[in-house]
Simulated assay, not measured.
Amino acid sequence: MADIRYQETMWAEMKPDIYGGESCDQHVPAWECKAEGDMDVERGLKDIEFSASAFPPGTKIVVSLPCCPDCGLDAGFSQNGACECGFDWKAWAEERYQ
């Protein structure tokens, strides 16, 4: 069987609204999505859904978590808080997504 080359065609990043909540200091999770050929991105999505019938056989969906720049551990599925080594993911998000 021949090796199959894969082409990335869609991307999404969880870009929280870092000014959420009544006091404008809460992080509200939201996806920003883009597909190859799109002129713009979709922002503020709460959920992403993939219908199997929209894709050809062999399509893969990959999720990549950020890794701590200090110790290398991935951020896990925690949206806020600190890494085991003390790296502050909330502060990182506020700097990155301001």
Rank of each mutant, 00 (worst) to 15 (best):
D74P: 15
D74V: 03
E95P: 02
D17E: 11
V28K: 06
A93V: 01
H27M: 08
Y19C: 02
D38F: 00
D88E: 08
E49G: 10
G44A: 01
N80E: 15
D47R: 06
E8H: 12
E13I: 11
G72Q: 07
Q7R: 15
C68L: 10
K46E: 13
E49L: 05
A82N: 12
Y6L: 15
W92H: 08
E36A: 12
E32N: 04
P66C: 10
C24K: 10
K90I: 06
F50C: 05
C85R: 06
R43G: 03
K46W: 09
A52I: 08
K34W: 04
P66I: 12
C68N: 09
D88W: 05
G58Y: 09
M1H: 15
P56L: 10
D17L: 01
D70M: 12
V62Y: 04
S64V: 15
A2D: 14
I48H: 04
G58A: 06
D40A: 06
E42P: 01
R96S: 06
D38Q: 04
T59G: 07
A75Q: 11
R43N: 05
I61Q: 06
Q79G: 12
F77Y: 14
L45I: 00
V63P: 00
V62N: 08
I4S: 15
K60R: 15
A54Y: 06
V41C: 00
G81R: 09
Y19F: 14
K46A: 11
R5L: 14
D70I: 13
A2P: 14
K34S: 07
E84D: 12
A91V: 05
P57W: 09
C68K: 09
S51I: 07
P16T: 08
Q98F: 02
A35S: 10
L65F: 13
E42I: 03
F55D: 01
D40G: 00
Q98M: 03
E94F: 04
F77C: 08
E95M: 00
P57D: 13
E42S: 05
I61R: 12
A82V: 12
K34N: 01
D38C: 04
N80A: 11
K15C: 10
I18L: 00
L45S: 03
A52E: 13
A35G: 08
R43C: 03
E42Q: 03
M10E: 11
G81V: 02
S23A: 13
K46Q: 10
E84L: 11
E94Q: 10
V41Q: 04
G20H: 06
C67R: 14
E32A: 02
A2K: 15
F55N: 07
C24F: 11
R96A: 10
L65V: 10
W31G: 03
V63F: 14
Y97M: 00
G37P: 02
M10G: 04
G44H: 06
G86I: 03
W11K: 12
C85H: 03
Q7V: 14
